[in-house]
Amino acid sequence: MHQPYLPGMTMPPRPTESRDARTALASYPDMTTEDVCRYAKFLGASAELLVDSLFMRLGERVFPMPEHERCDRALILPNGTPIRIQVKTRHAVSINGDYVFNLRQRSERGATGRGPYESCDFDILAMVALSEGVMRFTADWQLRQVIHASEITELRRNPRRSLDAALARLGHTDAIPCGWDGDLDLAA
């Protein structure tokens, strides 16, 4: 016997898709490619929530954007300026342990694929290595981006550094809490 959540209301049984997802995702990141594709929306949402969590821990204001927008989040700077953030995640590493991001809007092979992004679609890219729980921000426009295995420890230790470098690259050094005296190559 279980306690109803609200008086007189019992929760409906969990849908089959949800039960299947729970079973498949329990082994993340050691999943089949088929399961990674099948649960891509779950994993993408997880990466977006990880980005939200970091922004919250940094005291930043960030808001989700509707699904049809060309970016995933809007970061509102202290002066009210919105910065469009695109979140991309990778689940597998290359042979040398790097996470390689090829900027495409969904799968080009799928019915919803829209091809590569354009430079006007977003301001900052948030690359998430979901299995590592780290992200790297960049305002450097390239269709191919990489989180190198050698960067992961520093990204975990200082998650704000790449965000500040990306903001500096965009000319928003006034939005960096402790000021900016770094090298802009960090945003590349």
Rank of each mutant, 00 (worst) to 15 (best):
R22N: 09
T112S: 06
D72H: 09
D30E: 13
L75Q: 09
D183N: 10
A47S: 15
N158Y: 03
Q3E: 12
Y5N: 11
Q105S: 09
F42Y: 15
A139T: 08
T81Q: 15
I152E: 11
Y99R: 12
V51A: 13
S150M: 02
C178Y: 03
F63W: 10
I95E: 15
F42T: 12
E60H: 11
V36R: 14
M31D: 03
N79K: 09
G80W: 10
S119K: 12
T81E: 15
A175Y: 06
L75N: 08
Q142P: 02
Q86E: 13
F101G: 00
L50K: 08
V146N: 07
L49S: 13
L125W: 01
R19L: 15
P64D: 08
L155R: 04
L54F: 13
K41N: 11
R73W: 12
L54N: 06
R157G: 09
I76E: 11
D123E: 04
E67I: 13
L155Q: 03
L75P: 11
A165R: 02
L75A: 06
N79W: 04
V62T: 11
G80Q: 05
F55Y: 14
L50H: 10
P29V: 14
P159H: 03
V146Y: 03
A111S: 10
I95R: 14
T138F: 02
P116T: 08
L58W: 07
S119F: 05
A187P: 02
T33L: 11
N102Y: 00
I176F: 03
R156E: 13
E118A: 07
P4H: 10
D183V: 01
A187E: 03
G59R: 08
G8K: 01
R90L: 02
G171I: 11
D20N: 12
P15Y: 09
V100R: 13
M11E: 12
K88T: 00
I76R: 04
M65K: 08
T81L: 14
D164L: 01
A175F: 07
Q86M: 00
A168L: 09
D123I: 04
L170T: 11
H148Y: 10
A175K: 03
M56C: 05
G80M: 08
R38S: 13
L125A: 06
G113E: 01
H148L: 08
M127C: 10
L49R: 14
E154Y: 10
G179N: 01
M1Q: 06
P78C: 07
D72K: 05
A139V: 06
I147T: 01
Y39N: 03
Q3V: 06
R19Y: 04
H2N: 11
G115H: 00
R161A: 07
A111M: 08
P15A: 05
T10P: 00
G171K: 09
S107M: 02
A187M: 01
G179I: 01
G133H: 10
C178W: 03
V134K: 12
V128L: 10
S53H: 14
A149W: 03
Q105T: 04
Y28L: 11
G182C: 05
I85C: 01
V87C: 09
Q86R: 01
G179R: 04
Y117P: 02
A126K: 05
D30R: 14
R73T: 01
R161Q: 06
A26K: 09
G80F: 11
C37G: 02
H148A: 13
M135L: 15
E132P: 09
F42H: 15
R84Y: 08
Q86P: 00
L170C: 05
Y99N: 08
A166Y: 04
